[in-house]
Computed example of a mutant assay.
Amino acid sequence: MPLVTAKRTGLVDQVIAQIRELVTSGEWPLGEKIPPEAELVAALGVGRNTVREAVRALSHAGLLEVRQGDGTFVRATNEISGAVRKLCGQELRQVLEVRRALEVEGARLAAKTRTEDDLREMSACLTERDAAVQNRDSESVVTTDTEFHRLLVAASHNPVLISLYDGIREAVTSSVATTFNPEIPPEQHVSHTALLAAVRDGDPRRAAEEAGGFLDELLAQMGPQAEESGQ
């Protein structure tokens, strides 16, 4: 698939789209080095800064990996796969701990401040999420589960809390992708039905317990912290 000279509008987005297509299509194979910067600049007809910004964005998304002095390599074929590769061990534990702090408070406040529109959006999203779990559709599970928790925190109507949660959105997505196992029977996966019910019933204590409970289970499954286990 040849590279096409980019138009003068939205250069970075166009370059990102072309590189992503080359990666997802397998034209640039997983684990292989992509063409050097000078070659990309010539083929795309854009400046070095545009290419660097596009590569930086795709590296941030987990598709590419920049190795100083060695070049840029294909790390994953899609964002979900890239997200899975980005979190592991102690880093995942830390993200889950931060998620717990924000989501528990978000659920507690949501139980007191949620609107009917909030409930409708969360209910529709949870229905999609549960259907994706039944179908073992990992990509859809990650998308809908992450969105459900975002909607939950948004229902708190606390702009500071919402802003903080938005700041870790990518890490939340990564943690959901990392902890979802499609090999587990659907009925054994975490259900957020009780959490939504607590918010709907206006019960802050129960909502906070439900929001923290499943994250506590995930943390317990990870075993001792890395420092304690000598990892």
Score class of each variant (00 low, 15 high):
54 A>D: 07
54 A>T: 15
56 R>Q: 03
61 A>N: 07
63 L>R: 09
64 L>M: 09
68 Q>E: 12
68 Q>M: 10
68 Q>Y: 12
70 D>M: 10
72 T>A: 05
73 F>N: 12
74 V>R: 12
80 I>H: 01
80 I>W: 06
80 I>E: 07
81 S>K: 07
84 V>N: 00
85 R>T: 05
87 L>Y: 10
87 L>K: 11
90 Q>I: 09
91 E>L: 11
92 L>A: 02
95 V>K: 10
96 L>V: 02
96 L>P: 00
97 E>F: 06
97 E>T: 12
99 R>D: 03
101 A>D: 08
102 L>H: 06
102 L>M: 12
104 V>F: 00
104 V>W: 00
104 V>D: 00
105 E>G: 07
106 G>W: 03
107 A>E: 00
107 A>G: 03
109 L>Y: 05
113 T>W: 15
114 R>N: 14
114 R>V: 10
115 T>F: 15
115 T>A: 09
116 E>I: 06
116 E>M: 12
117 D>R: 14
119 L>Q: 09
119 L>G: 01
121 E>R: 14
122 M>H: 05
125 C>T: 15
127 T>S: 11
127 T>P: 01
127 T>H: 05
127 T>M: 05
129 R>Y: 10
130 D>P: 00
132 A>G: 06
135 N>W: 13
136 R>Y: 08
136 R>Q: 13
139 E>C: 01
140 S>A: 14
140 S>I: 11
142 V>S: 07
142 V>N: 10
143 T>I: 03
143 T>M: 03
145 D>C: 10
145 D>F: 00
147 E>W: 04
147 E>N: 09
147 E>H: 12
148 F>H: 11
149 H>P: 00
153 V>N: 02
154 A>H: 09
155 A>F: 07
156 S>P: 08
157 H>F: 13
157 H>N: 14
158 N>M: 04
160 V>W: 10
160 V>F: 11
160 V>K: 08
163 S>C: 05
163 S>E: 15
166 D>Y: 09
167 G>I: 09
168 I>C: 12
169 R>N: 11
169 R>Q: 09
171 A>W: 14
171 A>E: 08
172 V>D: 07
174 S>Y: 02
175 S>F: 04
178 T>N: 04
180 F>A: 11
180 F>D: 04
184 I>T: 15
186 P>L: 02
187 E>F: 08
188 Q>I: 08
190 V>K: 10
195 L>W: 06
196 L>H: 13
198 A>V: 03
198 A>R: 05
